[in-house]
């Protein structure tokens, strides 16, 4: 009887605790959404999304920030997705599970995922701008300053480094769900390993690659630290026209308006609306990724 009672108490406590934490998490999300929604709903109009900031960003829209963010994630994806996919293919198809090189790469990927994002920013500044950019200017432009400063390309590449682990892990997972039977069928028909990967494994992993891309885009759209030193601009009167231009960014825009603004209180509605846009963007991207991934998991069974 005693043991039973004890078990009951423990069980009840654990249940209550987990219920509480679930409620807490949900509550935080709901509060976040409700507050930003209430604060930003009046400002969030079509015009807000499509016009430039005005009067020292106290009025007007956020179009350059949206545009800059979009360019950032597109270039980042172009860099991160193929690179991540190739790495994932190497890890799953070519490297032996226990070889030191595969182990090393896996360790590196895991470590990369835990590095604080501001470190990526510093790395980008040091590596891309001060080393690669300056090198390019010296070699090709005879010291003329063009690449050795923050711009869209360096920002995107730095962001690509940050999101690479996400892509690698997603694609790896997807490749593993392609049944062994299909690979064997292809090989038994006299296909080479590469033909098998190209014609069977990759087409079967498309949804995984898509999930990886979307998750990476979601992450990249929300992060500010990596682009802080490598490309994001406080304010630009024109849209970037080349990868060597600086750009505006939603996350950075929020940061700027809430800390550097001439009148923080007056800019409040714009801040809320911008936050709402960024939240909706990252939420919907994540939701899409979750949906694709759950479909993938079902196929695995």
């Amino acid at each position: 009887m005693k043991i039973r009672l004890k078990n009951k108490i423990i069980g009840g406590t654990v249940t209550a605790a987990s219920a509480l934490s679930v409620i807490l998490i949900l509550g935080i999300i709901v509060i976040m959404l409700v507050v930003t929604f209430i604060g930003g709903k009046d400002t969030l109009t079509w015009k807000f999304l499509t016009t430039f900031p005005e009067e020292g960003m106290m009025k007007g829209g956020i179009f350059p920030a949206i545009y800059g963010t979009a360019l950032l994630v597109i270039i980042m994806s172009i860099a991160a997705v193929p690179f991540g996919t190739i790495t994932a293919i190497y890890l799953t198809e070519y490297a032996h599970e226990k070889s030191w090189i595969a182990q090393t790469i896996r360790f590196a990927v895991r470590t990369l995922a835990t590095v604080p994002s501001i470190i990526f920013g510093l790395f980008g500044l040091g590596f891309f701008i001060k080393f690669v950019g300056a090198g390019m200017d010296n070699w090709f432009l005879g010291g003329h300053l063009k690449w050795a400063q923050p711009n869209l390309l360096w920002g995107s590449l730095t962001m690509a480094l940050l999101t690479l682990p996400v892509v690698i892990v997603s694609v790896e997972e997807a490749i593993r769900t392609v049944p062994r039977e299909l690979r064997e069928a292809s090989l038994a028909l006299g296909a080479t390993k590469w033909q098998t990967i190209k014609r069977v494994v990759l087409p079967g992993s498309v949804s995984g690659i898509m999930t990886g891309t979307i998750l990476a885009v979601g992450r990249g759209a929300g992060e500010v630290a990596p682009i802080l030193f490598t490309g994001a601009a406080y304010y630009l009167a024109t849209l970037p026209t080349s990868v060597s231009d600086q750009f505006m960014n939603l996350g950075y825009h929020i940061y700027v308006m809430s800390t550097q603004s001439a009148n923080v209180d007056q800019a409040m509605p714009i801040q809320f609306a911008t936050t709402l846009v960024l939240l909706m963007l990252t939420f919907s991207l994540n939701l899409t990724a979750v949906l694709i991934r759950s479909r993938l998991r079902r196929r695995m069974k």
Partner: peptide, 28 residues
């Protein structure tokens, strides 16, 4: 392996059309 075909325990057609499944070998 082109000379020695293999049929497996679990039927394992590719997620392609019937035509493309059979054409897979010739295509590669």
């Amino acid at each position: 392996r082109k000379k020695i075909g293999m049929v497996f325990q679990k039927s394992n057609p590719f997620a392609k059309s019937i035509f493309e499944n059979v054409a897979y070998g010739p295509r590669i």
